[in-house]
Simulated scan of single mutants.
Amino acid sequence: MGLACAVAWLAALTVYDVRQRRLPNALTLPGAVIVLITAALAGRGAAALLGAVALGALYLVMHLTAPSAMGAGDVKLAIGVGALTGAFGVDAWVLATVAAPLLTAAWGIVGFRARGGGATGRIAVPHGPSMCVATVAAVAVVVI
C-alpha cells in the first residue's frame, strides 16, 4: 500500500513537471515528510534520513553551482526520493542517483536530435521526471 502511494506521488510529480516545468512545494515537501515518517514506522528511518540528507545535499550543491541547470524543486524532490531509495538500501540509492541524470541526458539527446540539432536546436529538459522514473526503477530492482 505504501509503495503504491509512493508511485502515485512520483507519477503526479512527473506529470506536473512535464506540463508546468516546475515541481511544486505542495507535492515535494509533504511527500518527503510522508516518506520519512513511513520509513521510520517500518524501521528504516535512519537509512531513509541518511538517503534524504545525502541526495538533498548533492542536489543543493549542484543547484548552487549551476542554478539555471537545476531548479530548487529538484533539490526538494531529492529529499523525498533520497529518503525513499535510502529506505530500500544503498544499492537502490546509488542506482537511482546515477540513473536520473543519465535518463535526463538521454531525453535531452533524443529531443535535440528530434529538433534537428545545431546551436538553435538547444532544448531544456526537466529533471524531475527522470528522478521519479529512476527512483521507481531502482526500488523495483531491489524489491523484485
Rank of each mutant, 00 (worst) to 15 (best):
L102F: 14
P126L: 02
G116E: 00
G118L: 07
A96S: 12
G118P: 05
I109V: 07
V94L: 15
G117M: 02
A100I: 06
F88P: 08
A83Q: 01
P126I: 06
L84H: 01
V98A: 13
I123T: 14
A92I: 01
G116H: 02
W93M: 14
L103Q: 06
V125K: 06
A96I: 06
G89F: 04
A100E: 10
W93L: 13
P126F: 01
I109Q: 00
F88T: 01
T85V: 00
G117F: 13
W93F: 03
G108Q: 13
V98D: 03
G111Q: 15
R122D: 12
A96T: 08
A114P: 01
I123Y: 01
I109D: 02
R115C: 06
F112M: 13
V94G: 09
V125D: 07
W93H: 11
W107I: 13
D91L: 04
R115T: 02
G118I: 08
R113I: 11
A99H: 08
G86S: 05
W93E: 08
G116F: 01
F88G: 03
A92D: 05
L84Y: 02
A119W: 14
V94R: 09
G86T: 14
G89Y: 08
P126D: 02
A96M: 14
T97G: 08
G116T: 07
V125I: 11
L84A: 13
G89T: 05
G117N: 11
V98G: 05
F88V: 02
G89A: 03
G117T: 09
T120H: 04
F112Y: 11
D91S: 15
T120I: 03
G116W: 05
A83K: 09
G118M: 10
G108H: 08
R113W: 10
R113P: 05
L102S: 02
A114F: 12
G108A: 03
A119K: 15
T120C: 01
A99E: 14
A100G: 09
A119Q: 12
L102M: 12
P101V: 00
R113C: 14
P126A: 04
T120W: 14
R113Y: 09
A83Y: 00
V90R: 15
T97L: 15
R113N: 14
T97Y: 07
F112V: 04
I109M: 04
A119E: 15
I123D: 11
F112R: 03
L84N: 00
G121C: 03
R113L: 12
W93Q: 07
W93N: 12
